[in-house]
Amino acid sequence: MVASSELSAPKRSRPIRAIIVLFGGMLALLLAIGLSISFGAADIQLATVWTAVFSFNPDVTAHQIIREIRLPRVLGAAMVGACFAVAGALMQGMTRNPLADSGLLGINAGAAFMLAICFALWPSLPYLYVILFSFLGAGLGAGIVYGVGSMSRGGLTPMRLVLAGAAVSALLGALSEGVALYFRIGQDLAFWYAGGVSGTKWIHLQVMSPWLLAAMIGAVILSRSITLLSLGEEVSIGLGQRTKTIKVVGMVIVLILAGAAVSVVGAVGFVGLVVPHLTRFLVGHDYRWIIPCSIVLGSLLVVLADLGARMINPPYETPIGALIALIGVPFFLYLARKGGKEI
């Protein structure tokens, strides 16, 4: 960030590289999904995976396993990854905060907290409504963190927001655990501690899909304005952008994405931190490319993490959030060391 030539180089968008990343990523994602479906307690050939998807036969046990357990799980992982990654990309672009991530800023913890309350008070509530609670909780978490951040004497600096996010996450996490213990709903502790996609069912995917589709389309539509916002609020206003509206719409999309993802996987962090940075490094600073590429790479990351979570120590599953944190933490430390200023 010294010479102006160095400054302009990474700001360029790189359409060709973006297209390569997009298609390469999709190819890798398909491969990872295939592998993930075939790997498990009962090993299934890739060919069987193919026939189970494209010519399903209910009499074959392997087909049943794939249809009822493995397919929803891997699709859930892919969706969750896309959600977290796009949410992170939007937040980083809108607030110019390189440390923005729905996990780090307390949004995931908020969603998980409302889920705990929801499971405790209305255990038989259909998922259709449960997801709404998750959105509400995401808003609660974000509200508290930004509230505390803006009340601070030092203002809304990226580092201060992350500290507030950590404290809010600790508080809401403790409350969720308390509620889970009190109402004895904490059978699957991993969900509260480190997340897992093992419980994904078709109904989750069905309910999530329309929300996600709408949110993703919204994100893509917003992407041009986000690019301008990421150059600075003044620049954006000067170019005739209605920054307030964009920020509000962007935030709503973030809350929907993070809320939906948490309702399936639990409060998993760092996906939204790592993927957008990686994408920006690969395809440049144009959010019209960053957002689609984040969708693909985010899905890929979580599908691979889920695969890894099952491969490390079979038949036990390693919590997926713990695995992702092992990648995310060093990355975060690197970003924090740079001072949290550059994006």
């Binding site: 490390i312 919590p319 959030g321 713990a322 944190a325 092992l326």
Partner: peptide, 11 residues
């Protein structure tokens, strides 16, 4: 670092 170590502990 605490987050990383906790994750490592779980794994």
């Amino acid at each position: 670092v605490a987050a990383g170590i906790s994750s490592a502990t779980i794994i």
